[in-house]
Design a protein around this nucleic acid. Sequence first.
DNA 1: GCTTGACCTTGCCCCTGGGGCAAGGTTCGA
DNA 2: TCGAACCTTGCCCCAGGGGCAAGGTCAAGC
Lengths: 259, 259
Amino acid sequence: MRAMTDAPAGGRHLLTIGQLAGYAGVTIKAVRTYHDRGLLPEPPRDASGYRRYGAEHATQLVKIRTLVQAGVPLARIRELLAAGPERFGAAIDEIDRNLRERAAEIRRVRERIAQLHGGDRLFVSEQVAGYLTRLREIGVSERTVRFERDLWILLQAVAPEQAAAWAADKVAAIADPEFRALYLDYDAAFDWSPDDPRLPELAARTRRWYAGRDDSVEAELPADPAISRLAALTAEASSPAWARIHSLAASITPHSPAT
Amino acid sequence: MRAMTDAPAGGRHLLTIGQLAGYAGVTIKAVRTYHDRGLLPEPPRDASGYRRYGAEHATQLVKIRTLVQAGVPLARIRELLAAGPERFGAAIDEIDRNLRERAAEIRRVRERIAQLHGGDRLFVSEQVAGYLTRLREIGVSERTVRFERDLWILLQAVAPEQAAAWAADKVAAIADPEFRALYLDYDAAFDWSPDDPRLPELAARTRRWYAGRDDSVEAELPADPAISRLAALTAEASSPAWARIHSLAASITPHSPAT
DNA sequence: GCTTGACCTTGCCCCTGGGGCAAGGTTCGA
DNA sequence: TCGAACCTTGCCCCAGGGGCAAGGTCAAGC
């Protein structure tokens, strides 16, 4: 066996680095990198300093390339090649599991990518996305829907559980025709002047609607003042008319339709 | 609209970088990298120099993360976000195609990985792998089979088309019971002494077998002298007994059974 | 008021898996 | 004998961050 594994005898090492790389489907640079990282032993050199490879390097290199294509890091490959066949086999099983996982991940990513085409599902919870869709269905302008969406994103980022409770409340409210009418009027009022004579009446209707609600529903909502202020401030910063309504109906702060 | 897109007004930018990163499922470092690469605009700073983000950053960041997970390079993502929705849509289609391709690639890699468990298919052509399997079936020792395999790897690396022609010839020869018997005797002779009295008779049988061949088959084989020498030298370096046979039957150089 | 821990800031060097280029030496075929 | 195609080493570059240093800041609890 000595002659087969060690012998530097003539004839056993005759592939140049380019031929070896070509056979294994790898670049010359990659071969040299594998030498540097200790994955592939340095072969003997010929008289002029060229590396001369034998079949043992070729089999090793094909193994390495296969593992590299499977996404195994070079450091791990070095360990695997050094380990015995039983550990090697176990590692291969693990790598294959890993590969299956990656394929599944790609499927998941493809679904998300498809949602980039449009739709809000990418940015907010399913519940909120359904609510936004419902708003569009009843005729709310795209501008206001986007405004709502951005507000929900903030809410979800700051306080996910509170956002969920509020969203449930909103979904329930939107089932009421009176609330829907109110919401559409708010939508229309977005760019009215703050002096518009219709605003006081809208504020009064808003107050009446909240007054008529079941108090128990109200009590269950977490009433974090920072969150309420956030909603109110955001609305006021966007529309002077909404700010006016807010000041006219000061008592209803946290639950005006557009927030 | 101005108030919705530019306003630094209080209340609109209140996420810290950590909250933003947490919402989008991204590290703080990644957010800063996206600022540096121009994927995400720098938000206003608060009094103490902290970045303060609004919902528009959150939506943008979720988009970015989704594209990053899909393997889109950051430079490309920047272009996409700057482009109009029609180009964005077209790019999404292309990215999805890319993703499908990657999934297919993973399937292919899994097949190759499975072959790492054993088998020669990873290292030599299907034809040669079949030939090696046939050798094992007729009882050739594993040592000699590996020796053949290594030689074929060298041949395929140096001259793939010649290797294919030679392999076809070998597959045909192995169908002949006389050749099979000869091959097994060579296998047994591997570690005989070069002075063994049985060697001259083996050399004579070899010469007879080649003499009885159809000459037209012989003529079709490419007779590259370098390749023949490679085969002969490799064999001689491995087994003194084989070297002895070779010198006894000098005329049959390129086609002795073990090469 | 003070400490403590969790945040934030910038800047710098590190990693993988090579690619590309420079500046030379070698080998092979016409 | 010359050019093309090889080979050699060495160096810097890329993405997409990670990790650490050396600070400034904020909120809670005592």
